[in-house]
Amino acid sequence: MTTTLYVFTGTGNSLAAAELLAQKLGDTVIESIPIQMKKASPVIPDSPKVGFIFPVNYSGLPLILSEFIPRISLSHVPYIFAVATAGGVGRYALLQLDTLLKENGSLLQAGWMVRMVD
């Protein structure tokens, strides 16, 4: 697999965005962040590209993502990106994710906002 998408969705908008992106990219697997959080061992993706897709909560990163990032090993992943779905302002969520990734020894190479209905 070329790309792994880690997804957290509340209403289904982020999952729909992930499914569309996976279809366009091809050779992509979608992983649920809540399911990955149930694993006792660290999460180690075997893809050279990893994406995080999530909704913006109160202009910021969802709590579950803040808890997930320290549990995922990304030091061997050359390309990390994110797609944040939001009805309003959400740029801060991408900045928060970048900060967490840096604390974990990685870097966010790209981030996009997808406007959804508010």
Rank of each mutant, 00 (worst) to 15 (best):
T3D: 05
K24F: 01
Y79T: 13
L107K: 13
E31T: 10
A16Y: 04
P62E: 05
R71Q: 07
L15K: 09
G88Q: 08
V114T: 13
L25I: 10
F68S: 01
V89Q: 10
L61K: 06
V83Q: 10
G90N: 03
S41W: 05
E67S: 12
L100A: 08
L108A: 08
K102F: 05
R115H: 14
G60C: 09
P70N: 02
L97V: 07
V50H: 09
I35K: 14
V89H: 07
I30N: 11
V56T: 13
T4A: 06
T99N: 08
A82R: 01
Y92P: 02
L100Q: 10
T11V: 01
L107N: 10
D98R: 02
F8L: 08
Y6H: 08
L5M: 05
Y58R: 13
I64T: 03
D46Q: 14
N57F: 14
A84Q: 09
M1E: 07
Q23P: 00
T3N: 06
F8G: 02
L95Y: 07
I69P: 06
G105W: 10
T3G: 02
L20E: 15
A86W: 10
G10F: 06
P70C: 05
P48D: 15
G60S: 12
I35Q: 15
S59F: 14
P45A: 07
I72A: 00
D27G: 04
S106M: 04
Y58F: 14
V77G: 01
K38C: 07
R91C: 06
S41C: 05
V43A: 05
Y92K: 14
G51H: 05
P45L: 09
P42F: 01
S106Y: 05
L97S: 02
R71E: 00
L95Q: 12
Q109I: 05
S47T: 13
M113D: 03
L5N: 03
G51F: 03
A22V: 04
V29G: 08
T3S: 04
R91G: 14
I64M: 04
T3I: 01
S47C: 14
R71W: 00
S32F: 08
F52M: 10
L74A: 00
Q96I: 04
K38T: 15
T99G: 01
Y58G: 09
I69H: 00
L21E: 09
E67T: 13
I72Y: 00
P55M: 09
K39A: 12
H76S: 11
G87H: 08
I64W: 09
V56E: 08
I35P: 03
P62S: 03
